[in-house]
Write a protein that binds this DNA or RNA. Structure first.
Lengths: 211, 211
DNA sequence: ACCTGAACACCGTTCAAGT
DNA sequence: ACCTGAACACCGTTCAAGT
């Protein structure tokens, strides 16, 4: 990989303790690094360097590299949930299709504003060995949110009688596939143009739900 | 990462040349490694070890680690295209929606049979710096295939008058989102059951295309 | 043309020791 | 409680040298 030009950050005088909350400082610095370069090249040693601490200090707060990343991913999912709910709240009383699109709008905004974090959340197999059930739980919660909205659409007679679990997976797949295209740079629209674009492309799937 | 227990493969007597096509041998061994553990932990040194060659020998055949992986990803896309076309050929004269589902069926089969390779093809930002335009080209070709089928559907009056590029992106997003769920183990169905499942979930999107 | 010895600058992780 | 010295077993990559 041959990284060079590492930031020659101030190293605190040897022997001193890190001021405040090292755990938080490491998470914040990691988030910033993700913003700069994505999750693939993240290194524990570099984040420690940035915080001005020996890299082994991190092991007092996180079991290992993966645990630190998972922690941040969980925070990301929490933020995504909050933003998604806020988007729904600011557009209340809409029909179910529009509410699904609102969730998509919030998700795409999140993905474009924090692409590194979003890629961490969806990308590498953080949970390859099933060590972090919390990750699965939080994903399931996201999908259940979709399912609720779809159930609402069925109840209101806007959607046909469909398997709401299958439909939620269909919408989830379409949405995350679109996010992947955006985050990878293959769809370059941003902001309102992206929102309108998403409304049209995901609109096909929603249209498939309709009675 | 702390890998241990590396296969103590026969090392050919020092000074001897690798028998046949080292380039091919490296690609094959890499493919096999992808099958075992996915792309994230792949290492140049280990693949060289498996082939029984010093790791620096690889640099005579590939500019660097990324180039080797891209080469394999390109072969993967080629195979995917072939299988997809074969699936279409074996189910000819169908209406456009069924043809889209046939492409999805082939793609899902490919993804489930070679999950490591599929994740390599779709996962890490191999082309982060735009070094490998061939990768973008091959992706574009895949999407154009979808667009052709959608145009066919419009021409035959099965689909409504829609923006065929947008529709192809919508279907691509839905399909690759579904593949991601399958490859990540969150959808566990395989074989015929998976095909039927995909036909239903992607069917929502296709239904949205219909006149 | 193909391969390697030796080296460089990185990794993640562990253990024992310091304050 | 929090931090580090020293070490281990890994990486990718380069250069000069061997056949």
């Amino acid at each position: 990989m041959a990284k060079q030009g590492r930031a020659r950050v101030e190293r605190k005088p040897a022997g001193e303790y890190h001021h405040g909350n090292l755990r938080r400082a490491l998470l914040d610095a990691t988030l910033q690094m993700l913003g700069e370069q994505g999750p693939d090249t993240f290194s524990l040693r570099e984040v420690a360097r940035r915080v001005g601490v020996d890299h082994r200090a991190a092991y007092k707060h996180f079991e290992d590299r993966a645990t630190l990343l998972v922690e941040l991913a969980l925070e990301g999912f929490e933020a995504l949930g909050t933003e998604s709910d806020a988007e729904l709240a600011s557009t209340p009383e809409l029909e179910a299709g529009a509410r699904l699109i609102a969730i998509a709008r919030a998700t795409l905004r999140f993905a474009t504003q924090q692409p590194g974090l979003y890629r961490l959340m969806t990308g590498p197999r953080l949970n390859a060995d099933g060590r972090f059930p919390a990750l699965e739980a939080v994903l399931r919660a996201r999908m259940q949110r979709l399912q609720q909205e779809i159930e609402r659409g069925v109840a209101r007679g806007e959607f046909m009688q469909l398997d709401t679990l299958e439909a939620s997976i269909a919408f989830w797949a379409a949405l995350s596939g679109l996010c992947a295209l955006v985050v990878s740079g293959r769809v370059r629209l941003r902001g309102d143009k992206l929102a309108a674009y998403a409304a049209r492309t995901l609109g096909f799937t929603v249209r498939g739900f309709r009675a």
